[in-house]
């Protein structure tokens, strides 16, 4: 009965937070306006009434301090989940994330662990313009010591967050804001989606698309359209940006012989660059029948105008056209 229920992405995240706090008293939440306000995207909702202000802790508007306090609490035995109101604001906290959280275990000879989770609402499409719409996953994916995950479905949103809270290392959980209202099947129990494992969302034989978060949905839409033309696309949902699941991608490319990477972050030096290189360096290289295709965010900040905002990140129509060209040998 409960196993066929549907929840929105944001309700799935909230359920993960509630179950984690229920199960482990060391778990607590910190962030700006996550208490009575319920979070800027209403993800924490009414949790403050259930768990109290100490465990659903409103912070001052102080991202460097807030993130750093979460890191310190984690080292000292707590299990904090710090919500950045927008992942863009993590730029204010880079010192604590990159210099402290990521490196502490290593610098201290493996004698401590840093079980902190940062929740990172990201992405464009809300009209919030350049400082509230970025997709900075690749930045953090560049840092040894960090783990970076990004769900595309409500089921994985819950499972990856629970896995992140369990994980002894710092994990950044990116949540695309346009997915918060997307509904899907979410099991009721406490389950974990493994960190470091991608999943094939749609099997196909003509080309592999590797996508993350909202781009998985767009890639699947594109695949449905192309299926009517007899083009059969395989779609891989990356789910973890670091450590990236090479084997799943390589196996798929060996089968389809074509690769496209679709991601919202800026194209240059982004996720697609890493996936392309990973394939080019692997045995899958010999299987390639076409150049590798990257569809990423434009080389610009995210603009305000809805027309320009749409143009700044890959959209379904463009993905369809590019994949058609890729499969028909026009690239």
């Amino acid at each position: 009965m409960s196993d066929i229920r549907e929840l929105s992405f944001s309700a799935a995240v909230q359920e993960a937070l509630a179950q984690a706090m229920e199960a482990d008293e060391r778990v607590f939440l910190m962030g700006e306006d996550i208490g009575v306000y319920g979070g800027a995207f209403q993800v924490t909702g009414d949790l403050v009434h259930r768990f109290g202000e100490d465990r659903v802790r409103d912070t001052p508007i102080a991202e460097l301090g807030g993130a750093g306090v979460a890191v310190g609490a984690a080292v000292a035995g707590a299990r904090p989940v710090y919500e950045f109101q927008f992942s863009d604001f993590a730029t204010l906290a880079m010192e604590q994330i990159v210099n402290q959280a990521a490196k502490m275990r290593f610098m201290l000879g493996g004698k401590v662990s840093v079980p902190v989770v940062f929740r990172m609402p990201c992405g464009s499409g809300t009209g919030a313009a350049a400082q509230h719409s970025q997709s900075l996953e690749a930045w953090f994916g560049h840092v040894p010591g960090l783990k970076v995950v990004e769900a595309s479905t409500p089921e994985d949103a819950k499972g990856l967050l629970l896995a992140a809270i369990d994980d002894p290392d710092p994990v950044l959980v990116f949540e695309h804001k346009l997915l918060y209202k997307v509904k899907g099947h979410v099991p009721a129990g406490m389950y974990r989606t493994p960190i470091g494992k991608a999943v094939v969302r749609r099997e196909g034989k003509h080309a592999t698309v590797v996508a993350a978060a909202i781009m998985v949905h767009k890639a699947l839409e594109a695949a449905e359209i192309l299926a009517k033309e007899g083009i059969d696309i395989e779609v891989i949902d990356l789910r973890t940006i670091r450590p990236i699941d090479g084997p799943t991608i390589i196996e798929s490319v060996k089968k389809t012989s074509r690769l496209a990477c679709v991601y919202e972050g800026v194209k240059t030096l982004g996720i697609g660059a890493e996936i392309s290189a990973l394939v080019a360096e692997s045995e899958a290289f010999d299987y390639l029948d076409a150049p590798i295709l990257r569809l990423g965010g434009s080389e610009s900040p995210i603009p305000y105008s809805p027309i320009l905002e749409k143009a700044a990140v890959p959209q379904t129509d463009g993905i369809v056209e590019s994949l058609r060209d890729l499969v028909k040998g026009r690239i």
Binding site: L64, G65, G66, G68, V69, V71, G72, V75, A78, Q96
Partner: peptide, 9 residues
């Protein structure tokens, strides 16, 4: 921030 976080824990 780290010491402050340890105190919070």
């Amino acid at each position: 921030p780290l010491a402050t976080g340890a105190a919070l824990a």
